[in-house]
Design a protein around this nucleic acid. Structure first.
Lengths: 138, 138
DNA sequence: CTAAACTGATACAATTCCGAACTAGTCTAG
DNA sequence: CTAGACTAGTTCGGAATTGTATCAGTTTAG
């Protein structure tokens, strides 16, 4: 095999780790812990705790904690879902959306600092490849 | 919009998470916790606790714990370093190397299951791009 | 209607993790 | 030699994380 899967995996791992680390201070400035940020960023796509836990692959109990914190900080609120009264629909507040957008920008900026080293065409390539590799079927 | 850095970052994040998750059972079968595996895999390149902590970006206190476990399991041992008597040089045992290699294979296999969906040429591309993005300068 | 089986979310206890303080060894200057 | 600054690694106690039990609401079968 030309390309070593283990090495590729390690490379990728390291890259994300470095980028996340570089941003954690900025996230903290926005009042966000790293883990909380993941939840905040995913809420729009997965607006229920159970969905968040599945999407982010973290335990439900952890989601409960992060949501509690995010609610306490005024970034989101819970509402009883009309469709299913057991569910807590999570809704971002204006501050929550603002914080999320700023956090995503910070992250993108750092990632972009890295992306900037590769050509625009390579970026498109990278995206295509990652999307392909992520397609469920897993 | 060309390529969104935040989205790319999220994609990548998700990919690694899925792969790691898919392998954790197999690692457990080898007697390795996920975090321990990272340490085991890095020891050859960074044979001292302080180096491991820096390379893996985890606290020194955590390295102490993982190394303790790995030693207890017979995967590595500590030796006083001749050059600097404060240092603990970490040395993989035969079992440690075997476990590491098998774990890396398992990981590579899972990653390869994903890589298999893209062309060999794309794999080379991916590697080139990741390497480029990881180059320190950061 | 009621019971029983599910599912969403949370609470609590047990575990894991990590920041800060500490111990041991080294190095440099005087 | 000794003092003081420094670095490697560990320990300890509090914080973060999560498995399990539990409670609330839903759905199905009878």
């Amino acid at each position: 095999m030309a390309v070593d899967g283990a090495e590729l995996w390690t490379l990728n791992q390291r890259l994300l780790s470095v980028v996340m680390d570089a941003c954690s201070a900025e996230l903290a400035g926005l009042g966000l812990e790293t883990k909380e940020f993941f939840v905040l960023a995913e809420v729009a796509a997965s607006p229920y705790p159970a969905e968040l836990a599945a999407a982010l692959m973290i335990p439900k109990a952890s989601v409960t904690v992060y949501v509690r914190n995010l609610v306490a900080k005024g970034f989101m609120r819970r509402e009883i879902d009309d469709e299913d009264l057991r569910r807590h629909r999570l809704i971002l507040t204006a501050e929550g959306e603002a914080a999320r957008d700023r956090a995503l920008s910070a992250l993108a900026a750092e990632f972009d600092r890295r992306l900037a080293r590769i050509t625009p065409r390579d970026r498109t390539e990278l995206q295509r490849i990652l999307v392909e590799m992520l397609k469920s079927a897993g």
